[in-house]
Design a binder for these strands. Structure first.
Lengths: 265, 265
DNA sequence: ATGCCTTTGTGAACGCGTGCACAAAGATGA
DNA sequence: TCATCTTTGTGCACGCGTTCACAAAGGCAT
């Protein structure tokens, strides 16, 4: 999926003994547990919870073992207690003000997201470079101009920033965010961001996800046609020889890579 | 990033000898190469390209080695040729019709995404359960009602579906898509989808990404305060003892998990 | 033609993540 | 109190992914 394993913070250090892979699954467990909690289910076995979370029960038990021994043998896990423990471990018992930079289609959609507040995330501000957007309310929050970025970060003690700008301005926005004190960034722009040590970046990229699906899709289609074991080394003819000293300019690959996964405007 | 490594198709089989981790990076390389191509750069070294893609050069070379020997020692890789080879490997030389189900904020934003066409992805249809949406054009494409889902899939030969509905209807939509012939799904709804063998699902979940960032953020903050090596076993007091036979109902965890990462309506 | 220089392609080692399988622990009932 | 049954917690082995380090290969200048 998107954020993928294919998605890791630059720092792959094992924080407090908890493996990165486990951290990535904790929110999934938490969601399943919250659902059980709302149904007033008192306890769950690792088997049941694993099934709800779509993972192996042994993996789930090992994941929980990194947090501590919160289960009761012969019974299972206390739902409420586990919800609290995971929330605490993830840092969701405190308030996290976030800013969203780039209020286009996607930025606006993110601003309207209802799942923020319930998890301790609060949209502190919406920021856009377009002066025409300034003052206009989106999801009940007035959009502010990029000029005020540093002040907003500072005044609200923001440490998490969401970038939903076009790719062209993403690095610049990123630099300003980091300079202003942001140390965690969720990037929706289709660019590789370079950040100093100590800053975490997670990337969400629709285009990449679709391309990965296309790869597997193509493979499936190929298996239907080709007999087992045959390797189709070259389905179609190559356009030009590999060691071509003449530069063969492509017609126009279509202007891509300049906008985030979802067009901001 | 989001698309994680935490996010892998159910089938972790090594397709045609290409590791899953490599497949996930190919789109990144492709983007960097496309940028070079537009600047008419004829060749790149593994070092340069790796830097642009934000990876280790040895990793990049090994990744490319799974595709074949497309480089020239002492020189580097021919940009145009490599663009073609990666595109072909990813299946981007053909047309991929996709449908988007759930035209809320996020669905609409996705529909407006400009990066589809340039990569061979074409929005074949927009589908929503709300009758009031039917016929209304979004991004120049008229929204169709869910009733026509099966016919749309069939008529257009769609094999890739994007789910941007609330969590509550995601599984149902998924089942219908799969039943109609879709074998790859990009899921934006905050739910674990269960699909039959042979169907790939990738998940994009804003809430999870933020929670992972919060974890690392909390860890950073803790390091500043606590001395090295000290393990804070219990920063705050637990709300209730772990083996509580009395079911302690939580006040209200906030209704979450019923809407996708971005509110659809 | 020959030697030097650059860069690829890959063998090998290492570390992380996963899954198996079982011992330990607690509940439950007689 | 004791036996039994259920479920957790984890030691261990395996496989994938990453990285190092270097030999092989090709270009280029003399």
């Amino acid at each position: 999926m998107a954020t993928d394993r294919t998605h890791r913070p630059a720092t792959s250090t094992r924080s407090r003994g908890i493996p990165e892979a486990t951290v990535a699954r904790l929110p999934v467990y938490l969601r399943a547990l919250t659902a059980l909690s709302e149904r007033s289910v008192p306890t769950v076995s690792s088997e049941e919870l694993a099934s709800a979370a779509g993972v192996n029960s042994a993996k789930l038990r090992k994941d929980f073992s990194y947090l501590g021994s919160y289960g009761t043998r012969g019974v299972g896990y206390d739902v409420e207690y586990l919800v609290y423990q995971i929330s605490r471990e993830l840092g969701l018992t405190q308030d996290w003000p976030v800013v969203i930079v780039g209020i286009g289609n996607l930025g606006a959609a993110l601003a309207n997201y209802g799942g923020f507040a319930s998890r301790g995330f609060r949209v502190a501000a919406l920021i856009d470079a377009d002066p025409a957007m300034a003052g206009r309310p989106v999801a009940g929050i007035p959009v502010q101009h990029t000029d005020a970025l540093e002040k907003i970060i500072s005044d609200n003690g923001v440490s998490i920033g969401v970038i939903a700008t076009p790719a062209g301005s993403a690095q610049q926005v990123c630099d300003r965010l980091v300079q202003a004190g942001v140390t965690s960034i969720l990037n929706f722009a289709p660019t590789v961001l370079s950040v100093p040590e100590g800053v975490d970046v997670r990337k969400v990229d629709l285009s990449i996800e679709l391309q990965i699906l296309a790869f597997h899709e193509q493979r499936k289609a190929g298996e239907d046609i080709l007999p087992e074991g045959v390797i189709p080394d070259d389905e179609t003819e190559p356009p030009v020889a590999p060691p071509a000293d003449t530069v063969t300019k492509r017609p126009d690959p279509g202007s891509d890579g300049d906008r985030p996964a979802v067009m901001p405007a």
